[in-house]
């Protein structure tokens, strides 16, 4: 890199014609700038944190009337969700199970595929091909959820009814497949980061011992990167649990727990879909509305827990990396 290019890229700091000794004024200015800047940065960062806290506060406050009036045990374990009936029942078990059910089902599809794709991108193809393939993943992430919803209802649902003989096409399988596609970009990019962050030494040592590429990847690379991969899975799960519009359109929204449990062809309802579907019509100030906010709080708690889990695994991945 010659000098001209450097100037072009890095701007005035790379010009070496400045005096090395600063005047006291410049020194003081720099000092103040440094501290003021730091305080400013902190304030701005805090403003985004403030926003987060405001949202949390907002959701929790709106759910308080419900949480004080109804027993939380009934909310968590009750199966009946009849918010608009004369004797309303707010049993959230079916929708909690529904959320977990589709998310897990989505992971069953997405995780093997995502890890394989991550391995492929990091260890198998050349840099050039990788640059061609990577946009595919990015485009998958870029397609808006409304478009996925359309696809689920208008293309996938009739197709499944026709070819699999399901009585209904908008079901857990439909929602899970779409969610899997939506979670894949997250899983792939985080897992790929984790795998490629491992460095050459580990791989070279394995190859040096005479292992094939498959053996290296399966027995050395993946076990070494397992923390990062778990974090990828958890982040993918977060994406799947939080998705709203698609599940609202694709899952059928029946308030039931699938029976038998492995039958994906039944309709189910998730927490996000319940919020999205019922919020618009629930009267302001009713227990129905605050019950929906309570569902939101529950959702936040779930993502919070998942978050802690992923943070734990990610920091472990970093530590492992430090050690190796």
């Amino acid at each position: 890199m010659d000098n001209k290019d450097l100037t072009l890229t890095l701007g005035p700091a790379a010009e070496f014609n400045r005096p090395l000794v600063l005047t006291p004024g410049q020194d003081l200015f720099g000092f103040i700038l440094n501290h003021v800047g730091r305080a400013l940065l902190f304030l701005i960062t805090c403003s985004s944190v403030l926003a987060v806290l405001l949202i949390l506060f907002f959701v929790i406050v709106r759910s308080v009337p419900f949480l004080t009036d109804y027993s939380i045990a009934d909310f968590l374990a009750g199966k009946a969700w009849h918010p608009t009936s004369d004797t309303p029942a707010f049993g959230g078990l079916t929708i909690i199970v529904g959320s977990l059910y589709v998310s897990l089902a989505a992971l069953v599809f997405a995780v093997p595929l995502g890890i394989m794709a991550a391995v492929f991108l990091s260890d198998i193809v050349s840099w050039k091909i990788r640059n061609v393939v990577k946009p595919i993943v990015e485009i998958l992430a870029a397609i808006p959820s409304v478009a996925y919803g359309f696809f689920a209802v208008l293309v996938l649902a009739p197709w499944m009814q026709k070819h699999f003989g399901f009585s209904t096409g908008t079901n857990a399988l439909n929602a899970a497949l779409i969610l899997a596609v939506m979670a894949l970009p997250t899983i792939i990019s985080v897992a790929e980061d984790a795998i490629s962050a491992l460095g050459r030494e580990l791989r070279e040592a394995s190859y040096g011992l005479g292992a094939t590429r498959m053996e290296t990847i399966l027995k050395v690379v993946l076990p070494a990167a397992h923390s990062g991969i778990i974090a990828a899975v958890v982040l993918g799960m977060m994406r799947a649990i939080g998705e709203t519009m698609v599940v609202w359109m694709a899952s059928g929204n029946a308030t039931q727990i699938p029976h038998p449990w492995w039958d994906l062809s039944q309709s189910i309802r998730t927490m996000t879909a319940t919020i999205a579907g019922e919020m618009g019509e629930a009267p302001e100030g009713s227990s129905h509305r605050s019950a929906l906010f309570a569902v939101g709080v529950l959702l936040l708690i779930m993502t919070f827990v998942l978050n802690i889990v992923s943070e734990y695994f990610l920091s472990r991945a970093k530590k492992n990396l430090g050690r190796s």
Binding site: V49, T272, L299, F304
Partner: peptide, 13 residues
Amino acid sequence: MCINTLAGVPSIV
């Protein structure tokens, strides 16, 4: 933690 939790807030909220 706060920022990451924000990622889990349903969009309707």
